[in-house]
Design a binder for these strands. Structure first.
Lengths: 123, 123
DNA sequence: CTCAAAATTAGAATAATTCTAAAAATATTA
DNA sequence: TAATATTTTTAGAATTATTCTAATTTTGAG
């Protein structure tokens, strides 16, 4: 693991905010001011395919990166805001229904976040 | 509903393959050869925000569009191939755990498709 | 029919990400 | 240690998906 890879992983691990490549880049620049965005993408891809971090995609916005520990996500259908939520592990149940070769799953719960609720009252 | 909107919706409804905007565009051109891609995007956006169709995003590939009827997806982690799978409705359970203001959910099961399984043996 | 509103068009613009080729860093081996 | 091979980084161009803009066309109401 190179210093960049290590630090990028650390940023993803520590962050509670599902950072985008761009945000990780900004963070990384604080420590290595000379790093370029392509390096961040390279390392994120490598970390993802090594299974060291997880990529989350949501419609219309850049991919986000997340730590591995099992948890699910709440997604605001208005603004796309993403929060963690921890639900019981469904793997067993899913394997029973869909076959034992299921490797994992990705569950997003849709809701409207407080900010957007307030905003829609005003409109 | 304009003729374009109607036909685009129909294409999405009929297709079993979760088409991308591009693929829908190709299909639509067979009937209306003069239509442009922007029209497809416009209509897809409108249909999505009217809740007439559903958008599915997966990492690193263009968004796909799908009919509304409740079902979940199998995603191949190697090639991104998407299939339908119908699992029991989890809404009740999810509301119990995460709160009654959950509006819906999006569940993807990860697996390795047959094509990719074969291919990885060869490598 | 007339006017306003909505939809479509062409093409430029933007945003996210990947690619390319060269340079730098790191590891391996003689 | 020197020489070589491998991996990583860099800069910037290229690509892809999507949106935006402004002009034009179509539709719908009165």
């Amino acid at each position: 693991m190179t210093k960049y890879a290590k630090k990028i992983r650390e940023i993803v691990e520590i962050s509670r905010s599902h950072p985008t490549a761009e945000q990780i880049f900004e963070e990384l620049k604080k420590i290595y001011p000379k790093v370029v965005l392509a390096t961040v993408y390279n390392n994120l891809n490598r970390l993802c395919s090594d299974g060291q971090i997880r990529r989350i995609s949501s419609e219309g916005m850049p991919d986000r990166y997340d730590k591995l520990d099992r948890h699910d996500h709440l997604v605001c259908i208005k603004c796309g805001k993403l929060c963690d939520v921890c639900l019981p592990d469904l793997s067993g149940m899913l394997k029973d229904h869909a076959g034992s070769d299921i490797l994992g799953y990705d569950l997003k719960l849709m809701y409207i976040c407080d900010g957007c609720k307030k905003r829609s009252v005003k409109d």
